[in-house]
Design a protein around this nucleic acid. Structure first.
Length: 225
DNA sequence: ATCCAGTAAT
DNA sequence: ATTACCGGAT
């Protein structure tokens, strides 16, 4: 078992290794904080490519604002977001989210104005916003230092031996929150690099050829002698 | 444990 | 034809 200082060092070394391989990714790919929020909900258990089609639709219809989504008919919204999958639940979730923003905070800017730790509790209680979506909104839309954990993070770091696959969201997040400086640019890039690493190499069916983390990994290495 | 659902890679 | 996908609610 690693002590606290060793864990801090290991996390930063992994970060530097990924950064030097993939470069700065400059997430989240969106024009506005609200577009980040919408994308975070739409991408739930869905390929990002599907979400991009939907963002195009919503932009074309002028729907990427809190007010516009508040006005639009739920069934019509469902049709526009169809390519992202789960379109009925996601349409309802988007509607509930904007209604909540308006009633509780009045605007997205006001929502991000207060203490982000309190906001995190509030947001997670909104229907359709679980812990990952919540942290994505806080980090990438609100620029708050809240680390985002997803299925990729759990898979990669369990293969690295730093968490177990069965650890819950809070436990995996605590690894990063407790061992990294609370810096938005660091959290931003780290999560983006984890996603990139898992798309390229650390897939469910591992593709270890040329993996930059092979000598940190607990899996039987693909190119091992 | 099951449901929600479309899209692209394999 | 099967797998995988930047999850969350019931």
């Amino acid at each position: 078992m690693l002590d606290k200082e060793q864990t801090q060092t290991a996390l930063m070394e992994l970060f530097e290794t990924l950064l030097s391989r993939y470069g700065a990714l400059n997430w989240w790919p969106a024009d506005t904080p609200f577009e980040v929020c919408v994308g975070a909900i739409l991408t739930q258990n869905t390929n990002w490519g599907n979400v991009e089609k939907v963002i195009v639709n919503l932009k074309r219809e002028g729907l990427l604002s809190v007010q516009a989504l508040r006005e639009i008919d739920e069934e019509r919204l469902a049709e526009l977001i169809r390519p992202s999958g789960f379109f009925n639940v996601k349409s309802a979730r988007l509607k509930e989210f904007v209604v909540w923003i308006l009633q509780r905070h009045g605007s997205l800017e006001a929502m991000f104005g207060g203490d982000w730790r309190l906001l995190r509790e509030e947001l997670c209680a909104v229907r359709g916003i679980g812990p990952e979506t919540c942290d994505s909104i806080l980090l990438y839309a609100g620029e708050k230092p809240s680390f985002v954990v997803d299925a990729y993070t759990r898979r990669l770091f369990s293969r690295l031996g730093l968490v177990r696959e069965t650890d819950d969201y809070h436990r995996v997040r605590a690894l990063f929150m407790d061992h990294l400086p609370a810096e938005v640019p660091l959290f931003n890039e780290y999560h983006a690099l984890i996603v990139e690493q898992c798309k390229r190499h650390c897939r469910k069916k591992p593709s270890c050829e040329g993996c930059p983390l092979s000598h940190f990994c607990t899996l039987p290495a693909a190119g091992a002698p």
